[in-house]
């Protein structure tokens, strides 16, 4: 038996809107730790890792570890039917072939339940060890989204370079080139507007902007985004989910042939 009650149901709506176009089908794993997902896009270039810790739910019951295969597009369709202020409850029976999403309005005058069929998905779980990154950039998530969107009008790839001077986003295309440099800025009044650059070693990596733009659909989840870079690793773009966990996107770099 699984029963997860999330007062801030809009979080789950936002998570689904962030990942549904990147990943078609995925297994949601439920354990005592929390509700999690790891999935790759169909070309295995990008990976999504979601964790919603059990403590973040108003009620969390998971009698035994459960893996539920879902079509994310269909799940997003159902969650779209929840109001932004609704309380969302996810229910499933052990060994059952469906999952129920229950939506309660804040004053309990409307209760809806949507039942969705589960599917069998071959799990392709990658082991991702904790890593020390050569450079970590924390910046406003809206600024990161703006940069990715702007650069994708000029070129297909972005070179992200971190040096002592700051972080540079560059692209080139048929019409010309573009460079955007952000410097560390901790002097702002609001912490969510700060840009913080921690650099051990200068690093420069090239990524497909199409994926970066897809990741920025998670912008409504967090005011800040963390971009972790190492020359020998995929980049990690992380959106923290208020006191509950995170949504991380991993993207493999492009290299010169």
């Amino acid at each position: 038996m699984l029963e997860l009650r999330l007062v801030q149901g809009s979080l789950l709506k936002k998570v689904m809107e962030s990942i549904k176009d990147l990943v078609n089908d995925a297994n949601f794993d439920c354990s005592a730790t929390g509700f999690s997902l790891q999935a790759m896009d169909s070309s295995h270039v990008a990976l999504v890792s979601l964790l919603l810790r059990s403590e973040g739910f108003e009620h969390y019951r998971c009698d035994r570890n459960l893996s539920m295969g879902m079509n994310l597009g269909n799940m997003a369709k159902m969650l779209k039917c929840a109001g932004n202020d609704d309380i969302v409850t996810v229910k499933a029976d052990d060994g059952g072939d469906c999952v129920t999403f229950m939506f309660e309005s804040p004053n309990q005058d409307k209760i809806a339940d949507f039942e969705m069929k589960l599917m069998d998905i071959d799990s392709e779980h990658l082991g991702i060890p904790e890593a020390e990154y050569e450079a970590i950039v924390r910046m406003p998530s809206a600024e990161f989204a703006r940069i990715c969107k702007d650069l994708s009008t000029i070129g297909d790839t972005v070179v992200i370079s971190v040096t002592k001077e700051g972080v540079k986003f560059s692209t080139r295309g048929d019409i010309g080139t573009a460079n955007i440099v952000l410097r560390q800025n901790t002097s702002v009044d609001k912490p969510e507007e700060a840009t913080i650059i921690e650099m051990e070693t200068p690093v420069s990596l090239t990524f497909a902007l199409r994926y970066m733009n897809s990741f920025t659909k998670a912008t409504p989840l967090a005011s800040q985004v963390t971009v972790s870079l190492s020359s020998e690793l995929p980049v990690v773009v992380e959106y923290k989910i208020a006191e509950m966990g995170y949504l991380r996107f991993y993207l493999a770099p492009k290299i010169e042939e």
Binding site: S43, H125, L126, A208, P234, Y250, A252, K254
Partner: peptide, 14 residues
Amino acid sequence: GDKQLTMNMFYSFQ
């Protein structure tokens, strides 16, 4: 153009 690397070049299946 550049060559796109994939996830399994960095991480292995569990």
